[in-house]
Design a protein around this nucleic acid. Structure first.
Lengths: 203, 203, 203, 203
DNA sequence: CGATAAACGAGACGGTACGTCTGGTCTTGTG
DNA sequence: CACAAGACCAGACGTACCGTCTCGTTTATCG
């Protein structure tokens, strides 16, 4: 019998985030011993419920640091895309970005956690974007012969490339650039919709 | 006096690759002790010349596993892009892909090695693609108002997204899809108006 | 209310002996967890009724492995002593000897169990031997001025010394040697004067 | 290369004795981690040079607590025996006795250490006593037909029996009793030889 | 050409963390 | 209410590596 202790679960996840919030702490340097120590918990309790350090970090991250990246539905697809990306980039430019990039690093070594990570972190946003792009195709904002999934990745993936390679800092303007390029109207701004229409009718 | 021993350098890099070629070996599990043991070398010799395990792996990788991803110049930009991507994907789908993804993981924790990695691995291809896209813009294959760098990333980054997230297996057809969508989005007209006239005339 | 479960008590003691009968098992390596597991019993049940691992082992040993070391009363004291020692040594030379030596080891660390061990294992034989020796003194087989307790220990203790130090293997002939020497030292005369007359007449 | 560090060796043995000198500390409770902590030494250093906790304790004990149990040569064998036993008992009655009894406990579980213990602790005294008894036989203090080794054990083993079973406290008078019984003249003192003869003739 | 100083292999060192095991205690149903 | 089941905190186990630090022992210029 003996049910799982919710108190321990919370202390462990809290301790994990507390430790990770230190400036020079990384997921790599974080140890299960340190988590147990900080949480006032036996190591066994961690090993009993999580298969790896990365799994604990994913859980901790998901429960407390859920990224808010809303997808608006009452505006044009283009606006919704841009504001979604802008919000995502804004968060990745700060401390959560460091954590996300380290989580992506960890899943290269831990297939079980990769699955968890995809399910709880990635797929949600991934399919939301595809749906959004599909809506753009359906309502004529985007050309009819596009493949929504591929286009979504083209818009989305550069954000992760910047995050992971760090070849350029992540700046909010990237959101605009990406959407602009996707709509093939560099810097055309709000006039775009009309133009898009014109273009469609022209086609 | 006594110069650096080329023999030791080679044994270390060779040993590193030999160890990494084992099926269940990863950069994370690889240890400097194991490299020294395998290479028949004192640990000190490794620490004397490399700042970190990741640095050794980058060196080993660069010297022996250079990816061949040619950029053709005698064909259309579209063809050159597609064959370049296809070649890159082909290699990432195999063992070098596992290693590259682990190197990207490691640079999340080691800024010095990140720099080395970018310089010796990333920038080359990155700028080659930008140049190629720019050529496409210049010669009219792609719309004139595009930002070559952003477009390059949109074409390129999805490959890394697939490599790192593994949400879908890396398939060669991705190369075609990406180039197709890029030209559908941003070709000098045709994909958008479904006539292909502008592109033809521009070319 | 709920009385103590005899079933549990038996399973615990049985499991203890079963585990201890493995060739490479020792009291030191034996754990209460393992006993509980093997017995299909909660650890609490063991802790509720026994104060220590050693106490469980003593109980298990006493109930099932009682050493049979009869003291004959229809023969000379010398014969009775020798056959008693021979029987004891015979058993100590086998697996029970290993267990006894480990129990003696354990009581060095657990005063409560030392008491139990003495009462249930040691004193019986100890006083039986003293009585026997006293009988020898009374009936003239042994010199009248001897201290029965000290002489008993002199005869008895070497067996334990062999068992515990292992400087020589425990052999049945030791029984004869010890009794011989005891009667040579303290027999009512004969051994010392090399005639054996007195002993014969006394017997 | 790299020689063993004498400094570490000393700190380890010193720390071991320091920890063991605490009133409620036992060899069983003593942990290698605690020794390493107390000695300011890595656990590896202990494991590198000693096969077990017991081995460390034996070394520590031998180097610093060598029991002084002189065997006098300028007095009668009887006196030498008695004073040797008295000295041994005196030390076993104090803290070293606790340690010796625990070492004997440990060697029940560790054959390698049993060997070390016998060689460095036991055999010396064991053979010294045999020699002494043999001298007594040779010079007529003891009967000519005795077996020196068996008689030695009869005199010696009761001390360990008292130490290990604790059925009676270890008292110095035990030395006298044992020697008295061995010389078959309870409390008769130097006049013994004559009396021994007298008794024989009486029998 | 022989000295000499750096680089080298070997590996001991103080440490940290690993993942497992056990000790005792506490909790939660079941019979 | 004793029991089985087992979760819990605590902490030791023996191992693997970390990065630093001697050790002699090559080597390969430079005086």
């Amino acid at each position: 019998m003996a049910k799982r202790s919710e108190t321990s679960r919370r202390s462990i996840l809290d301790a994990t985030l507390r430790l990770l919030s230190a400036d020079d702490m990384t997921v790599q340097k974080l140890s299960i011993e340190a988590i147990a120590r900080e949480a006032g918990v036996g190591k066994t309790t961690i090993y009993r419920w999580w298969p790896s350090k990365a799994a604990v970090v994913v859980d901790a991250f998901m429960e407390n640091h859920l990224l808010h990246t809303p997808v608006q539905t009452d505006v044009s697809v283009r606006s919704a895309l841009e504001s979604h990306l802008r919000s995502l980039i804004g968060q990745y430019a700060g401390p959560p970005g460091r954590l996300v990039s380290q989580l992506i690093a960890e899943i290269q070594y831990d297939p079980r956690t990769r699955q968890t990570f995809l399910e709880r972190f990635f797929y949600g946003r991934y399919y939301a974007i595809i749906e959004l792009v599909q809506r753009g195709i359906d309502n004529g904002e985007l050309a009819a012969d596009l493949d929504a999934e591929v286009v979504s990745e083209m818009i989305y993936a550069p954000v992760y490339q910047h995050l992971l390679f760090g070849h350029r800092p992540l700046r909010p303007e990237l959101a605009t650039s990406l959407v602009d390029q996707a709509f093939a109207l560099a810097g055309a701004g709000p006039a775009r919709d009309a133009q898009g229409q014109a273009r469609v009718s022209a086609a």
